[in-house]
Amino acid sequence: MNGPITRDALQAVPSRWDSDEDDVLICCQVRQETHDVKSFLFRPRSPGLIRFLPGQFLTLELEVDGETVNRCYTISSPPTRPDTLSITVKRVPGGKVSNWLHDHLAPGMSLRALGPNGDFSCALHPAGKYLFLSGGSGITPLMSMSRSFHDLGEDRDVVFVHSARTPTDIIFRRELGLLAANQPHFRTAFVCEGRGGEAEWAAPTGYLDLQLLARIAPDFGEREVFCCGPAPYMAAVRALLTEGGFDMARYHEESFSFADLPSDPAEEDSTSAGVTTCETVGFSVEFSKSGHTVACAPGQKVLEAARVAGLRLPSSCAKGMCGTCKSRLVSGEVHMEHGGGIRQREIDQGYILPCCSTPLSDLVIER
């Protein structure tokens, strides 16, 4: 609940939290999961139940060093605990947002959030048996799914295989043991690159390969697979599953890769100021802050046209879900098919997502 636990508070039925109506979340707790991973718990500033599918993500809007930055983080808590939600963040060396969260975000502080969004969820792919594969902080959406099964008393047939650097880097290690103890059909397996300081560690060391996966889950070919982790990890998983003859139609993955892209295309060496032409006649797109103008072919998205011209705009999902590329449309008209990464009031204020916007006229964008 969002206050003292009283009889009246328990009997009250809060409305559903809607980020379009009130996008402020209050940090109510910070938990140290490993030496470089923290979980941040949030609640709405007014009583509200947070509804989402296990595995979905939230887009945070943060003020870091005087700059508004958007980042997507998968929700690690389950929807069965709707008064709060949590994200679990690994500190990335040099990472602007992860370091700010670890060093500054504390209980009582507030931030803006958009969502939840995303279609990486076991709820959308019901199956008799699941195989969860995660690497590092990619464990978070699969933990949300696992917690959901546990809270609902659904003893699903799940094999959860997590890869980490060392045993001390296994996020939610003790809780996964509890989930396995409470559910006979929920099994965990850990694969660590090395033992670290745990000389008695008896689980496999090295990297997950087809032979090891076949030992852990001999029936992996019969399971619905959900995978999340760093890009090289997921590429390796795809390769080993393909080698093992797995039907990739039952493979699902999720990841967000946020490079620290410059906010001003003029910072790039690859493009000089002026007009970049395109062979196909379309519409012009002027970026008012940088002074660049690019040609956008018929049916081409603004972000794609900018990239073809050598410009780098802040972006991540490229699917209209995360809101990273949000920009103000100074003039012109677009057709935008977004996936939840922008609020209606922001659209009413003249903002667009270039990644999913197709020009219907010449445009001027504040970038």
Rank of each mutant, 00 (worst) to 15 (best):
residue 282 G to N: 06
residue 68 T to L: 03
residue 51 R to L: 11
residue 274 G to R: 15
residue 171 I to F: 05
residue 39 S to F: 05
residue 249 A to S: 15
residue 45 R to V: 15
residue 85 L to K: 05
residue 249 A to M: 13
residue 42 F to S: 00
residue 330 V to P: 03
residue 94 G to F: 05
residue 127 A to M: 00
residue 198 E to Q: 02
residue 19 S to G: 00
residue 163 S to W: 04
residue 295 A to T: 04
residue 332 G to P: 02
residue 65 D to P: 02
residue 275 V to D: 14
residue 13 V to T: 13
residue 222 E to P: 12
residue 127 A to S: 14
residue 93 P to Y: 11
residue 252 H to K: 02
residue 85 L to N: 07
residue 108 G to P: 01
residue 286 E to M: 11
residue 227 C to Y: 03
residue 267 E to L: 14
residue 111 L to I: 01
residue 55 G to W: 07
residue 1 M to E: 10
residue 199 A to H: 13
residue 238 R to K: 15
residue 30 V to A: 08
residue 249 A to W: 11
residue 211 Q to E: 15
residue 50 I to A: 00
residue 72 C to W: 02
residue 337 E to W: 13
residue 296 C to L: 08
residue 107 P to I: 00
residue 155 D to K: 01
residue 3 G to F: 07
residue 15 S to W: 03
residue 274 G to P: 09
residue 173 R to S: 11
residue 137 S to H: 06
residue 271 T to V: 15
residue 306 A to N: 13
residue 264 D to F: 02
residue 158 V to A: 04
residue 177 G to S: 13
residue 165 R to I: 10
residue 141 P to L: 09
residue 67 E to A: 13
residue 250 R to Y: 08
residue 109 M to A: 03
residue 353 L to H: 04
residue 364 V to A: 12
residue 117 N to A: 14
residue 307 R to N: 14
residue 298 P to K: 11
residue 189 A to P: 03
residue 71 R to C: 06
residue 306 A to S: 15
residue 335 H to P: 01
residue 141 P to M: 12
residue 279 E to D: 14
residue 104 H to I: 04
